[in-house]
Design a protein around this nucleic acid. Sequence first.
DNA 1: ACCTGAACACCGTTCAAGT
DNA 2: ACCTGAACACCGTTCAAGT
Lengths: 229, 229
Amino acid sequence: MAAKRSGARSKRGINERLQPVQEPRSEPPLSRERIVATAVELLDAQGVDGLTMRRLADRLGSGVMSLYWHVDNKEDVFDLALDSVLEYRGPPQIVESRDWRGEVVHMLEDWRASMLRHPWSASLLPRRALGPNILSRLELLSKALSRAGVADADLNVVIWSLWNYVMGATITRASFDLSDDDRAAAQQRLTRLSERYPTIERSRLLLDNDWGGTFRKGLGFLLDGLSPG
Amino acid sequence: MAAKRSGARSKRGINERLQPVQEPRSEPPLSRERIVATAVELLDAQGVDGLTMRRLADRLGSGVMSLYWHVDNKEDVFDLALDSVLEYRGPPQIVESRDWRGEVVHMLEDWRASMLRHPWSASLLPRRALGPNILSRLELLSKALSRAGVADADLNVVIWSLWNYVMGATITRASFDLSDDDRAAAQQRLTRLSERYPTIERSRLLLDNDWGGTFRKGLGFLLDGLSPG
DNA sequence: ACCTGAACACCGTTCAAGT
DNA sequence: ACCTGAACACCGTTCAAGT
């Protein structure tokens, strides 16, 4: 390959300079990390249905079957891609650690934001095993809530309620990120039917697109209900 | 078909009686309704990945391409199957209609139960357009909450919070209905890692399988937080 | 109006083989 | 240890054709 390169240089001279420095033709060797990173790229670009072992191999510049040396199967790729996207680095130090509510809100909003950066991840998460990054988020949640005075008997209910809320909100939000065609069609059908749903129509339920604000307010309501005392 | 049948009778005489009355060999003609009903059967039996246009046609005793006369494409089949499963017949008359909270809880628990009867439906729902059966559930919810005194400015937040909670809970629950193999594997991995997540371990968060009770209690907390005053 | 088979452009994965 | 191509058993859907 080095030979190939110097050959090209002597043949084309200055033209060589037009190529970017990083030498696009020669791929680094395959590895688990490279496969996962490229899978995330592909998922971001094409969605869940866009991830194909063949396309993934193409992007990596390898044969399809080479992937199977590093990875069990396609399911495995999904699991690895998902977990790689859910790491939590913790709250900024500014957040006073006595403020359990601030800590919980920060972690959950970060969770939502991480998933929305990779919209395929939200709907995938509940179908997959709980990876280490998910488990440590749950651990953090448990600790904060215990500290807040939630009774042991209520702890699981409280955690699952928060989980349900965040998952439901994020999956719904991510699913509305559809193509403009789909949105237009849905909107049109709705206005056609709107006289049958007057209350929804009046409150403009389906046009409300301050997703972030709605998420935050709802989370506030939920925490009000969950807090002891 | 009538002609074919009487022909068989005159030829085989009493043997005819051995066949069940409904004549299993001759399928009724294809129709949208029959396709949707069979799709639901297939989804119940084999899950989302089990629904295949070819398998669906097999069950219906028709050629694959015959389906496309009645149905746009596979997406269409999903939409129709989903909506067909979400009809709401309303609360029993015993429920006093002044009791907004009882009405809301009844509808949401029925919603959850309907989806859990067809576990593929929960994870499908957020990805699909809002069909008429979903819209009337939302309409009912809006009315009940307005009656309960929720301010117009809060109405959308409250509705979406309930939606998020129910969807998150049901999708999560439905996804845990995996094969025993998967469960065993997940369980094993968890106990291996459990020392890193002491609080989760202590509260037995992932072993808690009173899903119904947890759902109901969490919903109660949420309604506490959402209720005005 | 309703149904059909052949064909196309894809899939994930097994296997036997290469280096 | 790592990579490969051929082959298998599937997909959804287009198309041109049948009744």
